[in-house]
Simulated scan of single mutants.
Amino acid sequence: MKAIFDDRQWHHDPKHFMANGKVLPSPEQPERITRLRHGAEAAGCDFIAPKDAGLGPIAALHSPEYVTFLKNIYTRWQRIEGAGEEVIPNIHPANRSDNYPKSAVGQAGFHQADTACPIGKGTWEAAYWSAQSAVTGADLLADGARAGYALCRPPGHHAYGDLAGGFCFLNNAGIAAERLRASGLRAAILDVDVHHGNGTQGIFYDRDDVLTVSIHADPARFYPFFWGHGNERGAGRGIGYNLNLPLARGTGDDAYLKVLDTALERVAAFGADVVVVALGLDAYVGDPFKGLAITTPGFGRIGAAIAGLGLPTLFVQEGGYLCDELGENLTAALTGFEGA
């Protein structure tokens, strides 16, 4: 299996994170790259650098207003007297139809949903190449590859078309799915991250040409809180093309695999030609977020079950945070898929 990664993805090094009223180091550390890369190599992956497909695939999902913001906000922020080293919002609009301010502070509040997505000097460059890694992975599948792995960091599934959040800036899995759709393939996105892929859902919610399915910890008391509930089925033409499968906190391998069967049945019913897996490894029992209780062998079973679809599959890295088993969990997921 080919794996895709660009060294410029190291350049995003967030410092700020807040949880339960406490300021903490960000869990989305560059060190994740080292561990994930080792895990992919242990699974037999051969790494290549992404090609630069330009802004087109990104702009297919993200508004030009938002892209302009991401490209320029760090430089603008530095012109503010006494500003901090990272762009962090401190005010938000009541809704997305409120007026769009000229102020850098106001635009940060408009385009950043929370304090978990600080923008530093290297953020745009890293996010751009993370997205290009997903695009190159999509192109490999469009050219006939059976599978690929995009080591996307920063991750993407909490990013909406014009809104960053939850460590995410550009929606890598969505960009890959749209690229595949534009090439004539029928694409489904299967999100197995412990957190609901709210940005992915939001982007495709009123569309019937890309299926979105997410298995995640119940958001009633877990991030992202406001999205990811079972009654969210889509809107307009998209009704019935979004499936959320929230699970009780602490759900383990066997119960998870039963729900995964339901997700895979929906992908098959959609008539997908190709699957983009938003591969969060933070469902692991020992992950710092402690949402679900999947074991390392459990990730192997998840990979094997996905392979049972018999469809070309692109794994796009989402969550999975620093613990000793992070790389092993990726190895298990990829080898489980390849061995099935």
Rank of each mutant, 00 (worst) to 15 (best):
W227H: 13
H195R: 06
E318T: 05
P219L: 02
A293I: 09
G84V: 00
Q317N: 11
A42C: 11
N95K: 05
G44A: 02
R301F: 01
K15E: 05
G240E: 06
G156T: 02
H229R: 12
K258C: 13
H92K: 12
Y223A: 08
V213D: 03
Q78T: 14
E125S: 04
V277G: 01
E28T: 02
G240I: 06
R146K: 15
I73K: 03
G339E: 14
D282G: 06
G319D: 04
L61A: 02
Y74S: 05
G120E: 12
E338R: 07
F226L: 14
L36Q: 02
D114F: 12
N20S: 07
C323D: 08
H92V: 13
F47G: 00
F17Q: 04
E325D: 11
L36M: 07
P155V: 09
E31C: 10
Y284R: 03
L314V: 10
Q107P: 09
I239G: 05
L211C: 01
L311G: 07
I73C: 15
L190C: 05
A43P: 00
E65W: 14
R179F: 09
Q201E: 13
L170F: 15
D114S: 07
R32A: 11
K2E: 09
Y256G: 01
T34L: 14
Q132E: 08
R266D: 05
L292Q: 00
A248T: 05
L334K: 04
T251R: 04
A3C: 07
L211S: 03
N242Q: 05
G280Y: 10
H157I: 00
P101T: 08
Y74N: 00
F315R: 07
I91G: 13
P30E: 10
F204T: 11
H11D: 15
P30D: 09
T75R: 10
L281M: 04
G300W: 04
T123Y: 06
F222Y: 13
R181E: 14
R186T: 02
L322H: 08
A150P: 11
I33C: 14
N172E: 10
T331Y: 12
L257V: 03
S97W: 07
V87G: 13
R8M: 11
R186N: 12
A131S: 05
A177V: 02
R96E: 07
I48G: 04
A293P: 04
V67C: 11
T115C: 01
I239C: 09
T212A: 09
R186F: 09
A305C: 00
L163G: 02
H111N: 10
L279G: 12
A332R: 03
P57S: 02
C117S: 15
F289N: 04
E178C: 07
N329R: 15
V277N: 10
G84E: 07
N244I: 03
P64D: 14
G184P: 03
A283N: 01
V67A: 00
A278G: 11
F69D: 00
G161S: 12
N95A: 10
I88F: 07
I88Y: 08
K71V: 10
A220R: 13
P101A: 11
P89D: 13
E81L: 06
Q107W: 08
R237P: 03
L36W: 00
M1G: 07
N99C: 12
D143F: 13
V275M: 01
F270K: 03
F69C: 01
A94L: 12
I73P: 00
A173R: 12
N172R: 11
T295M: 01
